[in-house]
Design a protein around this nucleic acid. Structure first.
Length: 270
DNA sequence: AATTCAATCAACCGCGTCTAA
DNA sequence: GTTAGACGCGGTTGATTGAAT
């Protein structure tokens, strides 16, 4: 037995919405709300549309505070970062971008961002290209089982999150790979505190924020800052993991060279 | 100017999940 | 505990637009 259709396909209108339909739907919802029943709504509103279609139209275009148009660099980074961490969970990603809809983000990813990143990947030797999308670019596996903690400026529990980009890589392996490398003298303000003696990976958004901090702190975008380690920032492929001592663990392009630095402090958001 | 091709994005579809009876 | 209806999500399609030839 198949699923019953949500509406009578033979009588509902399909295709692009007319301004009149938009106006009817908007007015009805502003006046009466959705009533918690999208299936019944089109009939009440005098629309010959499927309830699902109404819901989509409202959520993606008619509801207040929808943002259309160009995505900012910051939004790009958030999307890339979250996609690397959780995969195509567009609704979750959208929840981190006020005014953006999951459909918008999905389209943007499929038509533009993905291509940008593929371009970067295919020319990974290109200087500084990595800086555009700091946290890991291409998840090779399915999203993690655990939900991510996407809040900023929070205290992360140990081992709170292991993203898909970690396949074959652990904080421990990173630590060992860094043992002979030099230290980074920088410290970074206002960030995540791990429980003492634990190790953890950052949530994607925290990675993002740290990356932003890193850029700001070191001027790595060619502004004359110094990355005081044995490897250049351009060589960093898997950039940012923390261990419980607040050390930032980095892995080099060759997969073996690493370095570590201090990431201190606690508390407030950037 | 006409045609073809590619990019974009609004909308649809189907499935998994949730919830109330 | 089961079932049916509704919701929400992600993948996909197809119409439209713009660029290239």
């Amino acid at each position: 037995m198949g699923r019953a259709p949500c509406c009578d396909k033979s009588t509902v209108k399909k295709g692009p919405w007319s301004p009149e339909e938009d106006s009817k739907l908007k007015q009805f919802i502003e006046q009466f709300g959705t009533g918690g029943n999208w299936i019944a709504l089109p009939h009440k509103a005098g629309l010959k549309r499927c309830g699902k279609s109404c819901r989509l139209r409202w959520l993606n275009y008619l509801r207040p505070n929808i943002k259309h148009g160009e995505f900012s660099d910051a939004e790009d980074r958030i999307i890339c970062s979250l996609f690397a961490s959780i995969g195509s969970r567009w609704s979750i990603i959208a929840s981190q971008l006020p005014g953006r809809t999951d459909n918008d983000i999905k389209n943007y990813w499929n038509t533009k961002l993905k291509k940008k990143l593929l371009g970067i990947s295919s020319s990974s030797q290109k200087k500084a290209s990595f800086l555009q999308y700091p946290p890991l670019l291409f998840p090779s596996a399915s999203p993690p089982a655990q939900p991510i903690n996407a809040s900023f400026g929070s205290t992360l529990p140990a081992s709170s999150f292991h993203g898909p980009f970690l396949s074959g890589m652990t904080p421990e392996s990173l630590t060992s790979s860094t043992s002979s490398s030099s230290s980074i003298s920088h410290t970074f303000p206002n960030h995540v505190k791990l429980e003492s003696g634990s190790s953890a990976l950052l949530s994607s958004s925290d990675l993002l924020r740290f990356n932003d901090s890193l850029l700001g702190e070191t001027g790595l975008e060619g502004l004359g800052g110094v990355w005081s380690s044995s490897i250049g920032y351009d060589d960093i492929r898997h950039p940012l993991f923390l261990n419980g001592d607040g050390e930032v663990l980095l892995e080099g392009e060759d997969g073996s060279t690493g370095c570590r630095g201090q990431w201190r402090s606690v508390g407030s958001s950037f």
